[in-house]
């Protein structure tokens, strides 16, 4: 693409949990401004990929780069400060804290109080539903509302890339649509998106490119539009035995 390095890149990553290998030479990248989708069934190694990027799990081999610079060995807070926002699997809000407190925790790494306050207004404008619930305890919200708060919380860090783990999980079709169009909106503001999804066909509708992960290996890499019409990918995302 351009001369600038990808915002996120994994190079030949191997990961082990005890004797079980979760990744086999995993390589992928997200260019600036892209929405990239990582598809795969349960236990294919998707969530481990998220943990590797955030420094929560250390790979046994390979490298993880942000803006072309290795972040291996950096603590999670350091990686967050480099501009990596996260929407974790199952939202993981701070259930007993208010929605406002949750959002401001999203800006924990920032010290510019005035700008944080301005961003809070901006984010609430983007998520009117969240604004209505601002004083409520986060744990009492519905699943869809919690997903909104989780995305809003990630935005509060002013990230350059947001990584999302199954953002549509457990949501009704209506909420799935809302969440996906919001992801497009966020991307429209220049934030790159790396999302792990099982609900592949939905995710691919908003993505630029996709990777298919199977038992810890990337088996397909292609433009989202191509993946949508690729019969192999239909099998893979719905778990067909004949993929690859």
């Amino acid at each position: 693409m351009t001369q600038t390095p990808p915002i996120l890149e994994l190079r030949d990553v191997d990961t082990f949990y005890g004797p079980v290998q979760a990744h086999f030479g995993l390589s992928l990248r997200v260019e600036r401004g892209e929405i990239v989708c990582l598809l795969g069934g349960n236990a294919s190694g998707k969530s481990t990929t998220m943990k590797i990027i955030l420094g929560l799990v250390k790979p046994t081999a390979g490298d993880v780069l942000i803006d072309g610079v290795s972040v291996l060995g950096l603590s999670t807070p350091r990686i967050v400060r480099l501009g990596v926002g996260t929407v974790p699997e199952a939202r993981r809000l701070f259930g007993a804290m208010s929605v406002r407190e949750n959002l401001l925790m999203g800006a924990f790494t920032r010290n510019d109080k005035a700008a944080v306050a301005a961003d809070l207004e901006r984010v609430l404008a983007l998520f009117p539903r969240v604004a209505e619930r601002i004083g409520q305890q986060a744990g009492t919200l519905s699943g869809g509302e919690q997903q909104m708060v989780a995305m809003a919380r990630a935005l509060m860090a002013r990230p350059r890339i947001i990584i999302m783990d199954e953002p549509t999980m457990g949501l009704s079709p209506l909420w799935v649509d809302r969440v996906l169009s919001l992801i497009r909106d966020i991307n429209g503001e220049g934030v790159s998106i790396f999302m792990v999804e099982q609900n592949a066909n939905l995710a691919l509708q908003i993505a630029d490119r996709g990777y298919v992960l199977q038992t810890g290996r990337v088996v397909i890499e292609a433009a989202a539009a191509d993946l949508l019409v690729d019969t192999r990918i239909r099998d893979a995302y719905l778990g067909g035995a004949e993929a690859a």
């Binding site: 066909n201 989202a224 719905l238």
Partner: peptide, 27 residues
Amino acid sequence: AYLGHGNIGAAAPAGNAATAAPTLPVT
């Protein structure tokens, strides 16, 4: 539930047409 409405966002990619398939794709 599996494939969505096909109307996500303002400008869905061209590949969107594939989701109009009448059955869940199973080979």
